[in-house]
Every structure is written in structure tokens, then in C-alpha cells.
């Protein structure tokens, strides 16, 4: 896939850090403000898609980053199920909120909810990015 013009590349250089930080903010404050794992994960996937669209990439690099994205997605899924099983082990109920609740309206509150948000953001972001890579970017050979 070929990259775009110099203007697009420069603007991408400036903006991509801000988009990424915004995604991380949305994820970490998911239990206090609108947003959460789903929204933040898609925003981070959007930042990665912007980088690939602006700079382009070669087929080998795309294959490698697709593998890496699949690994991250599996990590997210395992983390989510792991939180659920930790609730089963420590408190006796699947998905029990076993951590202390903390001070309300503080960043460290909500028990397992921030950790679930992080796990879901890994899963959604990496999953959508690997969908984009395999559908739009990777060249494939048809052999009938």
C-alpha cells in the first residue's frame, strides 16, 4: 500500500500522539465520564489506521503487525476472562467485584471496572486494527 502526500504525513505526525493520548484518557476514565473500553479501543485503532493510511507499508511489515495485533487481542480476552475467574476464586461468584470500592468519583474507584475497561480496550482496539489490516492493506494472491 502506497503512502499519501507530504502534507498528510506532516499532519499525521502532529495529530497521532494527541489521538492516542485521548484514547488512553477515555479508557482510564471510563468509570467516571462517558466512554470506556469500547470507545477508547476504537479510538486507538483509529490512530493506528491513520498511521497505516498516511505512511503506507510493505506487505511483510503488514503481516508482522497483523500477527502482533492478534497477540494483543488474545491478551485482552485472557485478561477479561482472568478477572472473571479471579472473582470466582476470591469471592465465589463469576465476575464478582472483589476489589475495594475506593472513594467515589476518584480515579481509583469502582473495583474491577477500570481493569475490565483496559482488557476490553486491548481486545477491541487490536481486533479492529487486525480486521483493517487483513481487509484493506495486506496484498493476497488468488489461486483458484
Amino acid at each position: 500500500m502506497k503512502g499519501m502526500s507530504l502534507i498528510v504525513k506532516t499532519i499525521t505526525n502532529v495529530m497521532i500522539g494527541f489521538i492516542f493520548i485521548y484514547g488512553v484518557y477515555i479508557i482510564l476514565h471510563g468509570h467516571l465520564t462517558p466512554g470506556g473500553g469500547f470507545a477508547g479501543g476504537v479510538i486507538i485503532a483509529g490512530a493506528l489506521v491513520l498511521r497505516v493510511l498516511a505512511y503506507g507499508s510493505e506487505a511483510g511489515a503488514e503481516k508482522r503487525s497483523e500477527t502482533r495485533a492478534s497477540i494483543f487481542e488474545s491478551i485482552g480476552a485472557l485478561l477479561f476472562v482472568g478477572i472473571a475467574i479471579a472473582g470466582l476464586m476470591l469471592a465465589g461468584v463469576f465476575f464478582r467485584n472483589f476489589l475495594p470500592k475506593g472513594v467515589p468519583l476518584n480515579l481509583l474507584s469502582g473495583g474491577i471496572i477500570p481493569f475490565c475497561n483496559i482488557a476490553i480496550s486491548f481486545k477491541v482496539g487490536a481486533g479492529l486494527f487486525s480486521i483493517f489490516l487483513s481487509l484493506a492493506a495486506v496484498k493476497y494472491v488468488m489461486k483458484d
Binding site: H31, L32, G36, F80, N97, G111, C116, K123, V124, G127
Partner: peptide, 26 residues
């Protein structure tokens, strides 16, 4: 739950099993 966003409370605490199913579909 201690979370201030009620939508996040519903999807990740009260109905978390539903979210696990949706994650499986994705």
C-alpha cells in the same frame, strides 16, 4: 460498584456476562 458512570456499571458489573458474550462474538 463504586463507578460513577452508570452505563459502565451496567455493562461491566451488573451484566458483565453479557459483555463477555459480546466480546466472544467480536
Amino acid at each position: 460498584t463504586g463507578g460513577a458512570n452508570l452505563v459502565a456499571d451496567v455493562i461491566l458489573d451488573f451484566r458483565a456476562l453479557d459483555t463477555l458474550g459480546e466480546a466472544t462474538v467480536l
